[in-house]
Structures are given as structure tokens and as C-alpha cells.
Design a protein around this nucleic acid. Sequence first.
DNA 1: GAGTGGTCTAGACCACTGA
DNA 2: CAGTGGTCTAGACCACTCT
Lengths: 251, 251
Amino acid sequence: MAASKTDSFNRPEAPAGEMMEDQRQGWRDVRDVIRDWVLTGRYAAGDRLPRDVDIAAELNCARSTVLRAMQDLSDAGMVERRRKGGTRVRPDPIVRATLDIPITRREVEAKGGRYGYQLVKREVVAAPRAILAATNVADPRDMLHVEAIHLSDGQPYIFEDRWICLETAPEILGIDLSRKSANEWLVLNKPYSRFDVRLYAIMADAGMADLMAVAEGAALLVIERTTWIDEAPITTVRSVTRPGYQLATQS
Amino acid sequence: MAASKTDSFNRPEAPAGEMMEDQRQGWRDVRDVIRDWVLTGRYAAGDRLPRDVDIAAELNCARSTVLRAMQDLSDAGMVERRRKGGTRVRPDPIVRATLDIPITRREVEAKGGRYGYQLVKREVVAAPRAILAATNVADPRDMLHVEAIHLSDGQPYIFEDRWICLETAPEILGIDLSRKSANEWLVLNKPYSRFDVRLYAIMADAGMADLMAVAEGAALLVIERTTWIDEAPITTVRSVTRPGYQLATQS
DNA sequence: GAGTGGTCTAGACCACTGA
DNA sequence: CAGTGGTCTAGACCACTCT
């Protein structure tokens, strides 16, 4: 292992009185020290860590620096912080991953494929109960239902089954969805304040097998996403990916 | 407009019920203002935003506050920041989701199920090429191969196919894996500095169908994860979930 | 009520990196 | 080289929430 510059460490294990600790500069180093306290068991799951100000004193830095380090650890899911309650090591360890989902056209082009798009269905109908549930809508209502296929080099890449809330995005009715996908229009014209994503696997039924040009029964990864603007649902979309599709995240 | 206190409150989405009030302070408000600049097209994809100090002057706050807001937008993938290069609206819109993957035992218990665990296989063998590739290891070597099933109320929940690098985690050989899963031991004893996750769908083959008590050909979501400590691989695991399993993320 | 984290400020200096 | 974001500091005050 090549020793990077952040490697040389001496653990602030037993500070003797008021002698000055070595000051590594940078909140990342402070973060690493605190992380090591947790990983080496000095503080176990559920334990309370010292106050920021005390850590700052021990590590000889400003409280803001400890705060910055703690924010990082909090974002990573390692600790939980509460006013007055202090900072605690998260009781149940988790893996927190970040996942980027690009626009399909961009994704295809980035992989060097020729992007194609095909509208399959466009209708205004009463939304099924499952869609109402996904969007947290109580009363039955009409929505715009759009089915489309994204192609890479002429081959089906992602099948998109989308429902758009007409109360929130009525302008969509005037858009020609046979050329440009609803996704792209929505991204550019309908900002959202909240969304959620669900991932699961399905077997291709006869209809899906035909649309995606795969064998019936093929296992397909589905990315389901719903977006809202201030509690008003905008759209919910079920993206069925082609066989072998892989969603990678790194951190 | 004379630069005064009650300036720069241009949120198109803001309800107009209240009379104009003093600008609320807080980096979240600053963030929302900048976000609206982007969403309303004042700055398009790829455009360069003003310098932090200028935004601070316009919004009448400290530069640190703008910085905090920008960090949030940068984390969310909306803008990209570079020293000297300034802040630019990210050219290709993406959806960035955060995904929490708990320890399986915790997950089962949180859902109210009775957790069970069963060791299927434990062997030290030469790692296949696919595993070497996943861990970025060049030379062939022996690894500990562990197969196990996590149960919920006696039913198969997740099948775990794991390879553990003996150079990095030799202590695992002394652990009794017939009672406690390798996952739990690793989480508590082998901190990692980096990991990646891959998600995809598979069809259950005959062997998998038998292990998971599902029909052959069932579509199963797979969560594949590899962890390293400073470039040294620790473990790579393929977690095959039961039918209907869903991974949800929200933000 | 009081303790703790969260935020803001103002300024200084550093570290990248584009022109 | 010079412009821009990144970080640190020291202090003040606020907001939450635990006891």
C-alpha cells in the first residue's frame, strides 16, 4: 500500500494532561479520528460521543471543524445527532449508497449507442388504484397514461410505463409525445421537491416479452419512481430495463 | 431597485398570501433561491453561476452561507463546482437517490419476522475469475467461500453467496459461521474504507429455486456488494432476495 | 430550564486550476 | 499567474429536546 499523505497517524489514545495534540489539518482528518473511535470500539453502537466542543478541544481545532466532520459521518449513517441529545453511534449499522439515475437518452448515448424512442400508448384514463396509492392520492381521477420504449441501436433498452397527474402538469396534454419522451419534458419543465425510488425484479409476461423482444419469463430489473411538488404528485413511472441491465452505485 | 433589506425574494412558487416580509435567513432559503434560478431557466444546463461572493452580496448573506447552500446543491447533483472554474449547472440532469441497506437480521426483525440463519456451505477454495475481477485482484488465490440463507419466519428471505479475502480477514477462519452470519462478524470487526454496490435481476435456476423455495425461473433481485480497506479487498457478496423483495430509497 | 447541536458572520489563508 | 472555491477560526446567537 502506498502511503498517502493522510496515512501517518498516531492515535490520540491517552492524552497526558494538557499537552497539545498533534493537529492534523482538515475536517477529513478529524472525521477519520472520530470514525476510528467508533470502528475500534472505543464507542460502541448506541454510545454517546463527547460534545463537539470537547472533541474540538481534544483535537485542537475549532468547533466548526468538528461539526463539519460530524455532518459527514451523519450523512454516511454512522452517527445520529440531536440537539441536547448529543451525538450517538447509530445503533444498527447500515450501508448507505448513493445512486445516480441518468436520463435514458443520455445513458444510451454515454454508452456509445444510438438512441431511439417509440411511443406505444397515450391515453387519458382513470388511474388504477395502484397508481393512486403510489402517488398518495385519495380520490379517483383521470391521468395521462403513457407507454414508450427507449431503444439503443434499435434494440429495446427500457420500457417506460408512466402516469402523469393532470392537475399538477396539465401542459403535458399539449406536448407531442411521439417524438420526445415525457421524461425529458418533465425534467425540463416540472421541477419536483421530493421523490422516491423503488427497485425490484419482475418476470416478463407475454406482452412485456413482445415489447422488449425477450423470452417470456425473463428476469427484468424495474426502477419505479414517483415525484411530487409540495405534496402534489407529478408523475409515477415504472421503467422496465432490458435483461442484464445493472444499476451500479459507489461510495 | 435600491439594494436594501427586503430584496431578492423571487420565489415563483411561493404562496402569495403573506405580505412581503424580510428575507428569511438560512442556507436552505439561499439554496432554494439558487435552485429556482436553475429550474426557471435563468441559468440553463452548463451555464456558469455567479461567484459565491456575488451571490452572497445579492442575497445579503455571508459567503459561508452561500457555500453551505452550494454544497447541498452539489451533493444533490444539480451543480458542479471547481476552483477557478466557478459553479456550473450540471449539463446532464440526473436523479440522485440515497439507499440504505440494513443488516439482514435487523431488516427481518424490523418487519416483525422471526429471524433465522442457516449455513449452506463453507469452503476454502481458489476464487473464480469473476470474484477476482469484482475485487480488483490480479493474482489467483484462495478465498473463504460461504453460502448461507437468511430466513424470515422460517421462510427463505435472502440467499447470501460470499467470498472473503483471507489475506485481509484471516480471523474469519476461526469464527463459527454456523450460528452467526459472516456479515455480522465482518460489520463489527472489519471496517472498510470503500465499497460499491450493483443491482440486477436474475432468473432462479434449479439450484436457486430449491434453496429459496421458489419456482424455477422466478425473477429475483440481486444486491451485489464489494468492500475494500485501503485498496485491499475484504469481501464480495451476492445477496439474492426472495421474490417480491423491494429496495426503496427516498430523498 | 438548560444543554447540545445548528447556523450565521467576518475575515484570513490555502489549494486548486483555467487563461 | 490570478481567480475561484475550500477550509479554518472565534464568537455569537438560535432551535431543538431531554430531564
